[in-house]
Amino acid sequence: MLTRRVVPCLDVADGRVVKGTRFIDLRDEGDPAELAERYVREGADEIVFLDIAAAPAGRATLLDAVRRTAGRAFVPLTVGGGVHSVPEMRAVLRSGADKVSLNTAAVADPDLVRRCARAFGRQAVVVAIDTRARPKGGWEVVVRGGRQPTGRDALAWAERAAELGAGELLVTSMDRDGTGEGFDLALLRAVAERVSVPVIASGGAAGPADFVAAVRAGADAVLAASIFHRRIHAIADVKAAMARAGIRVRAAGAIGAGAVA
């Protein structure tokens, strides 16, 4: 039986890990490869890099960080942000990433999902869906970091993205993101029921209990950023809580685990 995955997300701008409200008050938090390696040592099952600047100038340094991370972390690495085409995706994969996460670009051009899946296999394509709850129920897709509504129904887009070739869906509640109020469990439940591909929960984690709740709502993996960056909770604590709740998780192990001196 599969373990449920714990996935730390690193916001990267100009090749450095940054923290702060997105685009505002960014603080340099260090080298992405170093942080990624630390997370893997602490039990991270995967790593996600989100290029929040996605500016051409910072792209080369990001890809360099991907290359260095791939050579040190030895767990799956996903890169989101700045990919609008098959050649851009190829450049990211050639740097050593295993998957690319498509968000705004996929909403603008849904066929991009199909083209990328055809070129690299669906296992390499994650579609990230940022959502906001609608006043009368349901969820709407938002883009550009949550600032732009699209009018599109999130569940319908989830289904369509999976049909087009997404291998996984990264579902974020922008209402909860950064609030520490816990994941939007109704959203996770609704998406997990609609699609057969794995669902990664994101947005709102405050503590280990939230990870347990997300898995019980149907998430296959749970992503978080700030609670790990700020060392509010260690990945190992989250995994221990999941294990206590009867959820199978991978035992944390060193990257080398004795295989390399």
Binding site: V40, F74, V75, P76, I255, A257, G258, A259, V260
Partner: peptide
């Protein structure tokens, strides 16, 4: 599976 993406146990298998 992917030993190159399976952390310590994967590296051991490749070793």
């Amino acid at each position: 599976f992917h030993p190159e993406r399976s952390a310590g146990d994967g590296l051991r298998l490749l070793a």
